[in-house]
Design a protein around this nucleic acid. Structure first.
Lengths: 333, 333
DNA sequence: AGCGGGTGTGCAACCGGTTGCACATTTGTC
DNA sequence: GACAAATGTGCAACCGGTTGCACACCCGCT
């Protein structure tokens, strides 16, 4: 069906090598031959087969994009930015949806079979070992939104969740809240753990602060809502909650509204991520920004460069967060 | 680095063909040989290279997933379901993000170079001709969420937007609204056009209905909000609006709340899609359901089967919508 | 023992490209 | 005009698999 190298070569009256060279940047081809080849190629609608050439060049220009966060609205932005950043560099995202899988073996095997040039693991919940499995299988890999560690085995690009937790603690303290709660995501997610650690540590700097802790079943609206409804029933509420993620905050907000409680007058809320929806005027969530686009830009840059330079030294690339003041905490007095 | 057919063959003391056959379903291999080969393969961690085999089999098991709706929250669900449905059949999604591109040439070229087995165009805004371009280039293609036409050149799977528009009209009529508005998505999107057509036609069956029309700049929260703010300034509002999409409705809702108007007491709203967020209790949007998961299941089934059977007869597969009663329209009297 | 049919395996060509090497041709230099 | 260097092109091998064909082998049957 589709024209091949041979077809073009015959039509142009040259060898297959000549045609191949006419299509590879930097090869030497006489101007006249090049013209003849281009004409023949145009006439036949010829395009070199990327997969066939990958066999000899060892490059497919495909990048595995592995994720498990298909329920958090922020990932719409994440996928948008990743795919565009990759496309801008001529790379193609091969998408892998993990859905509850925590064992990397399947993905590793599959992405090896497809000879991807590199892998991006985009997840704030997977353990460090997940991304390392790709590295062990010989693939360049970066872990975006992953846990910040000082000497990682693979590149990690994200925020320092512990610092973000501290920032939340400090923010609540300065607004005069004393009796506060942590409403985290799933307890086994690294981001939940680190945000909790930082939050608790930040609070402990101020003797008068007290903390109650609970975990939602997932990073999703319903999970946040259910957990907050439970809290409303169970015991007196805290004055303010640090939610492990914006979508949890919004769920919590909905629960509080249902219970007839006003935010921030009765209960304060602060989220994390600053996803697009947080600034919707009917939500107007005070939150901590996650510099998603910087993280993604850096991730793609790193995966692209470690394809070229396989023995590059992995590091943690950490971007800083800032508090975004909106309407779900009382103002600083 | 990675083990190849040859390595396994040498280790097992057989020919390369034997190894190949041991890995292809239905080929005849003596039990004893198979065992030796499997041992050797395990020892070397061998996995057949999917791309190399695609050269001779003509199948890559990759499917191009082309979309331009990376800002509508419903697409998070869409990507989740598509990737899972594809994976369940052993297919791999190669994601293409169009971002403002309306010319299919680039995508067609790229997906041909990667020899994808088929293409899914997932978009409610692209013209019919877009998906047809892949068909013309010899690739099996389905258009999910595309315009319903009676004799399409490629498979179209989605809802009948004209019928959905009529349904919205009828719903508003039965609830006693007489003076209504259409707040559409971008005027050049096929879904906007068809929903408008159906809505206007539905209204015209009742002499006493009157209609005002306006279009938001895109299928996005801010676009809906901005347009509704403009309407609030410009002229007396209609009693109720049919918004071309849930996310527009939510934007409109936010605008109305800001203006101190109550929904549904002062103004009614009905959306379309029934995305997850529409049932969030602080939104609680009355809307028309879009049977997304049926559409996706059917799309994947069709693309997979038209890979096997290339000269299959394309058709429009239309799923029906229903009104989802929630809190943004006054009750039927 | 002889024969027919089925099963298992290797050879070699092929899929659609790339690339080292050898050689021919052009170009530049004095 | 002679010679070296630079440039352009084809041959053939290779990337990692698949597959048609030929052939060897084993089995059961008369």
């Amino acid at each position: 069906m589709a024209a091949t190298l041979k077809d073009v070569a015959e039509r142009a009256g040259v060898s297959r090598s000549a045609v191949s060279r006419a299509f590879t940047k930097g090869a030497s081809v006489a101007p006249a031959t090049r013209r003849r080849i281009e004409q023949a190629a145009d006439a036949l609608g010829y395009r070199p087969n990327a997969l066939a050439s990958s066999l000899t060049t060892g490059r497919t220009k495909m990048i595995g994009l592995v994720s498990n966060n298909f329920h958090n609205p922020i990932f719409l932005t994440v996928f948008d930015l990743f795919t565009r950043a990759l496309q801008d560099r001529g790379l193609r995202p091969l998408l892998v949806n993990l859905t509850d899988e925590t064992d990397p073996d399947n993905s590793v095997r599959m992405l090896r079979q497809y000879s991807v040039d590199g892998v991006i693991v985009a997840s704030s919940t997977l353990p460090v070992s997940f991304a390392e499995a790709f590295h062990a299988a010989g693939m360049p890999v970066v872990h975006s939104f992953g846990r910040h560690v000082t000497f990682p085995k693979v590149d990690v690009i994200g925020i320092d969740n512990i610092a973000a937790g501290r920032m939340a603690a400090e923010t609540l303290y300065r607004r005069g809240y004393r009796n506060v709660g942590f409403l985290g995501g799933p307890a086994n997610a690294t981001s939940t753990q680190d945000r909790y650690t930082g939050f608790a540590e930040g609070l402990s700097r101020h003797a008068e602060m007290s903390l109650t802790t609970s975990y939602a079943a997932g990073y999703a609206f319903e999970a946040g809502r259910d957990e907050m409804l439970r809290l409303c029933e169970a015991a007196p509420l805290a004055e303010a909650y640090f939610c492990g993620d914006d979508v949890l905050s919004i769920g919590a907000l909905s629960a509080l509204q249902d219970k007839g409680l006003r935010v921030p007058d009765d209960v304060g809320l602060i989220g994390l991520n600053n996803m697009a929806m947080a600034q919707w005027q009917n939500i107007n969530l005070t939150t901590i920004s996650n510099p998603v686009s910087q993280i993604i830009e850096k991730s793609v840059e790193l995966v692209a460069s470690s394809v070229e330079n396989p023995d590059h030294r992995p590091a943690a690339h950490t971007f800083s967060c800032t508090v975004v003041e909106r309407g779900t905490l009382r103002p600083e007095s």
